[in-house]
Design a protein around this nucleic acid. Structure first.
Lengths: 168, 168
DNA sequence: TTATCTGCAAAGGCTTTGCACGACT
DNA sequence: AGTCGTGCAAAGCCTTTGCAGATAA
């Protein structure tokens, strides 16, 4: 596989939605509309940095000084369950280690959290030409495939699957 | 880009090294050779599941009942600094959220931990044919490019870079 | 011998849970 | 009115730090 030549874009600023649009989004998904929740979501989608809970807390607290960190966590959980946000590092609750130091990729089961190595020379050669223009120096890359392993599929077919809190 | 047709392999069992080979590996890198360390590393590289610290602790404790969890963490840190292991989810110390729910990929700065969105239709279409044979049902995927952002490169050129504890 | 490793204990940081009050539908 | 959200507090979990004794080079 050669370098990817298709158009790709780096997003430096995300969507800006009005509070009204956010309220509509919430109601569509059956979420109550509150000022804190609206502010947290707005801050999240406008942030270019994939903020932490504490980051959002600090930002939104400027507008709502009574805000508690707990509410931020709770709200993020609600947004996640509603499919309005993803956790970038959703396995944050524990570190996992990989003794394979050769380039490789991962198959990640969303059911049982199993991570399996995938070796594929084509994936090893992925590049994105547009990145070079941005000044970002790429030193490596890795592809993650998400899904369900055989055992989890047997135990829990797609039809009856519940969205796990850590799913993407 | 079409489905990748090159040979790819799923690793179900990892390397098996003798204690002597492990000892040599350690000495080559200036690490002391101890029974616990050898056992932890051997368990790590033989594990197909990308174990957690606790997982390794439980396993190795069967052979060395006096083993402490602290030693496992310390050893993993040493192995990581020596380049003998990577942390799969090296941002485990905090959750980060992404308000962009469209398919996209990430540029991750190992210097400042910045995560930037990368939209690229070609990357969106990646598939690995060999996965289908294994019974793993892929529901999504994502590419992570690691490296250094412009600011970190200016502040800390490649030549003087120290390996951060969270680097891959 | 000397640097470093191990194990115990305690601390630290982030996240979740429980509960009462308040707000949204 | 009823359900759900918010804020405070406390607990929980994982990981790191500090230190004394033990071990490898």
């Amino acid at each position: 596989m050669k370098a990817i030549r298709k158009v790709s874009t780096l997003k430096t600023r995300t969507a800006r939605l009005s509070p009204e649009e956010i309220g509509r989004t919430f109601r569509e998904r059956g979420l109550k509309v509150t000022p804190q929740r609206t502010a947290i979501y707005q801050t999240l989608i406008e942030s270019p940095v994939h903020p932490t809970a504490d980051h959002l807390y600090t930002q939104v607290k400027r507008v709502y000084p009574m805000l508690s960190l707990n509410t931020v966590y709770h709200t993020l959980g609600v947004l996640r369950n509603a499919g309005l946000t993803h956790e970038v590092n959703y396995w944050h609750d524990r570190s996992q280690f990989d003794g394979n130091i050769n380039p490789h990729h991962h198959l990640i089961c969303l059911g049982c959290r199993m991570i399996q190595d995938l070796t594929d020379a084509s994936l090893d050669r992925l590049t994105v030409s547009s990145v070079r223009r941005t000044g970002f120096e790429v030193t490596g890359h890795q592809v993650e495939f998400y899904g369900y392993c055989t055992r989890c599929r047997r135990r829990n077919p797609a039809a009856k699957r519940k969205r796990k809190e850590w799913s993407v």
